[in-house]
C-alpha cells in the first residue's frame, strides 16, 4: 500500500479474560493507516471494530486485553514506537495530543459540571500546550468557530446541557482537534445524530482532515458514511477482516458474500426491490475454535470447503484483499 504510513496494526489479537479461559474477540487483524487519509472500519455490532480502535489508545475495558501483535506508530521515517508495549504513562501523553478520539454519545462524553470552554482548555493544560490564559481562550474560540459553532465567544461559557446533540458533537470535535492531533478516531461519531446534522459533521471532519493533513479512523456500521468520507475501507466480521479495498472499488466491485449482503441490506432512495435481500440470522455467539470460515453459517454460497478450512486473505486487485474460498484470483 502507501509508503507514507502513520499507524500500522500487525496481527493484533484482543481477548476477553474470563475466569481461566480467554476468548478472542479480535483475531489477528492487519491494518494500515496512511498519513492524511480517512480509513473506514465497518461491520455489524459485536464484530470487534470498537475493540480494535480502543486498543490503539489503550482504553480497552478491564476484562479485555491485547494478547498478541503490535500497533506501530511511525513518529518519523526511521523512528517507530509500539503502542502495545508502551508504558501507560507514555501512552497517556500521546492520547489526546497525537491521537484524539470522538465517541458516539456526545452527552455522556462531556462533563456536565464544566463549561464548554474550560473543558476544551483542560486538553491544553494537561498536555502543557497552554501559553497564557488569554491566548488559549482566543485559540479555543477560534477552534469553536472553525467547527461551525455560531457565536463562539458566547458559547465558551455555555454548559453542555444548553447545546443540542449536533452542537455537542461539534464541541467534541473541537476538543479533539485543539491539540492538532495526527490521528483522529471517530467511534460511531455520527450514529446518534439526525441526517442533516450527520451530513454537516461528516463534511466538517473531511475538511478538517484535508486542512491539517490529519489521518482518521472512522468506525461505523453505516455504509453511507463510509461512501461519503472514507478513502479506504476494512470490512470486519467476528474479529477478522473479511475484505479491504479502496472505497470506490469496494462499492463498485464487492467480492465477499458478507460485503455484498451488507450492501444489499441497505434500502436505497429509489428503485427498491419488493423485499430486501439480507443476510439471514444474527451474529453467532463467539465460541471455541472453529476450523472453517466464520461466516459460512450465514453465507449465501454453499461450499463444503468453508466448513473445514479458514480461507486466507487473498489479494485480488490493487489494494483489494478478500478472505473467501469462492473468490478466485
Amino acid at each position: 500500500m502507501n509508503e507514507d504510513l502513520l499507524l500500522e496494526i500487525k496481527n493484533l489479537t484482543v481477548s476477553i479474560q474470563k475466569k481461566n479461559e480467554s476468548i478472542p474477540i479480535v483475531k489477528g487483524i492487519d491494518m494500515d493507516l496512511p498519513n492524511g487519509q480517512i480509513v473506514g472500519l465497518v461491520g455489524e455490532s459485536g464484530c470487534g471494530k470498537s475493540m480494535t480502535a480502543k486498543s490503539i489508545n489503550g482504553i480497552l475495558p478491564s476484562v479485555a486485553k491485547v494478547t498478541g501483535g503490535s500497533i506501530l506508530w511511525h513518529d518519523s521515517k526511521d523512528k517507530v514506537t509500539d503502542l502495545v508495549t508502551l508504558k501507560e504513562k507514555d501512552l497517556r501523553k500521546r492520547c489526546g495530543q497525537d491521537i484524539a478520539m470522538i465517541f458516539q454519545e456526545p452527552m455522556t462524553s462531556l462533563n456536565p459540571m464544566m463549561r464548554i470552554g474550560d473543558q476544551i482548555r483542560e486538553v491544553l493544560r494537561i498536555h502543557k500546550l497552554e501559553k497564557s490564559p488569554s491566548q488559549s481562550r482566543e485559540q479555543i474560540i477560534k477552534m469553536l468557530e472553525s467547527v461551525g459553532i455560531e457565536n463562539p465567544s458566547l458559547r465558551y461559557n455555555s454548559w453542555p446541557h444548553e447545546l443540542s446533540g449536533g452542537m455537542r458533537q461539534r464541541v467534541m470535535i473541537a476538543m479533539a482537534m485543539i491539540s492538532s492531533p495526527k490521528l483522529l478516531i471517530a467511534d460511531e461519531a455520527t450514529t446518534a445524530l439526525d441526517v442533516t446534522t450527520q451530513a454537516q459533521i461528516l463534511k466538517l471532519m473531511k475538511s478538517m482532515c484535508t486542512k491539517s493533513s490529519m489521518s482518521a479512523l472512522v468506525i461505523t456500521h453505516n455504509m453511507g458514511v463510509v461512501s461519503a468520507i472514507c478513502d479506504y475501507v476494512y470490512v470486519m466480521y467476528l474479529g477478522t477482516v473479511m475484505e479491504q479495498a479502496k472505497v470506490s472499488e469496494l462499492f463498485s466491485n464487492p467480492l465477499h458474500p458478507y460485503t455484498r449482503g451488507l450492501l444489499s441490506s441497505i434500502p436505497k432512495l429509489s428503485g427498491n426491490p419488493e423485499y430486501l435481500k439480507t443476510i439471514p440470522g444474527n451474529i453467532p455467539v463467539v465460541n471455541k475454535k472453529f476450523p472453517g470460515c466464520e461466516f459460512c453459517i450465514r453465507c449465501s454460497e454453499d461450499v463444503q470447503k468453508c466448513f473445514f478450512e479458514n480461507p486466507p486473505l487473498k489479494q485480488v486487485g490493487e489494494d483489494h484483499f478478500v478472505r473467501c474460498h469462492t473468490v478466485s484470483l
Binding site: 455489524e44 455504509m223 451488507l262 441490506s265 441497505i266 423485499y275 435481500k277 439480507t278 439471514p280
Partner: peptide
C-alpha cells in the same frame, strides 16, 4: 438496529 437486522425487520413489517 444494525443494517442486516434492520433489513430483516423491514421485510417482516412489509410482509
Amino acid at each position: 438496529l444494525d443494517v442486516c437486522v434492520q433489513a430483516q425487520i423491514l421485510n417482516l413489517l412489509k410482509r
